[in-house]
């Protein structure tokens, strides 16, 4: 079985982003970019499936600018076998990405797609569900555990009140939550080897998809800032303030 792992190039987790002065977006020039952390977890899960003999090939795919090659090389260094870059400049919405991934999943006859539950830039949490819908497959979102069976998979999902276990028919789309696994660091020899692994370049036209945005971003604003309050000296003073000043207890 082939496992497809879509990965997204995003602003690094540790970067404190800034809204542009003209409110047209977020400052991305000269900002460190990395693989979306949830996608790293997805790559790790796919590589583990291969190591356990449950997957034959792991294919990493990214939709983005030419520089998204970097995150694909990271996926290859972690253990993916080959990579596909669908080059698109500018913002691509989850619906467009899902249409492109459908093209790849169909062409590759993938049996499983694993991707992060959300990207930490747009925080949309949509692409996996949309891809599953377009393919007519089942979906196991926010997964904290995946057990592959014969023709089906048991997925434990992180839900609001705890955990939910479901059985999904294969082929399926699984989205990775934070605690599915701990991704490995790529070793230097594997980083070197990754440079020689195949990376195909494609365009949206190869999959018959037109890139169009359905949401007009009118402005991007700074969030309302909270003012720092006061320091109190003792629990007694705190209780007094909470009772008489804030009125919350």
């Amino acid at each position: 079985m082939k496992v497809l792992v879509p990965v997204k190039r995003v602003v690094d987790y540790n970067v404190k982003i800034r809204v542009k002065a003209d409110n047209s977006g977020v400052e991305l020039a000269n900002v460190k970019m990395s693989m979306n952390p949830f996608d790293e977890i997805a790559v790790e899960e796919a590589v583990r499936l291969k190591e356990a003999g449950k997957a034959d090939e792991v294919i990493a795919v990214s939709v983005g600018p030419a520089q998204a090659q970097d995150v694909l090389r990271t996926a290859l260094a972690m253990g993916a076998d080959r990579a596909i870059l669908i080059t698109v400049d500018g913002t691509t919405e989850p619906l467009t990405v899902a249409k492109l991934l459908k093209g790849v999943a169909t062409e590759e006859e993938a049996g499983l797609v694993i991707l992060g539950k959300q990207a930490i830039d747009d925080d949309a949490n949509q692409t996996g569900q949309m891809l599953s819908a377009l393919l007519g497959w089942s979906q196991g979102t926010f997964a904290s555990e995946v057990e592959l069976g014969d023709g089906s998979a048991k997925v434990t999902r992180e839900v609001d009140g705890g955990l939910q276990a479901i059985e999904i028919k294969l082929p399926a789309v699984v989205t990775a939550d934070l605690r599915l696994n701990e991704p490995r660091y790529a070793s230097l020899p594997n980083i070197m080897k990754a440079k020689k692994k195949p990376l195909d370049q494609k365009t949206p036209a190869d999959y018959g998809v037109t890139v169009e945005n359905r949401l007009n971003v009118l402005r991007v604003e700074e969030p309302a800032q909270r003012e720092a309050g006061i320091k109190v000296a003792s629990p007694a003073e705190l209780i007094e303030k909470l009772k008489n000043e804030a009125g919350v207890i």
Binding site: P94, I120, P223
Partner: peptide, 28 residues
């Protein structure tokens, strides 16, 4: 195309939503 995690309704087709962990607010 879905609009996720709306925090404010501006009009029937325009909404505010947080991006980048709430470090920016997008008006879409």
């Amino acid at each position: 195309m879905q609009v996720s995690e709306v925090i404010e309704v501006v009009s029937a087709d325009t909404f505010k939503r947080p991006i980048y962990a709430g470090n920016a607010i997008e008006v879409v």
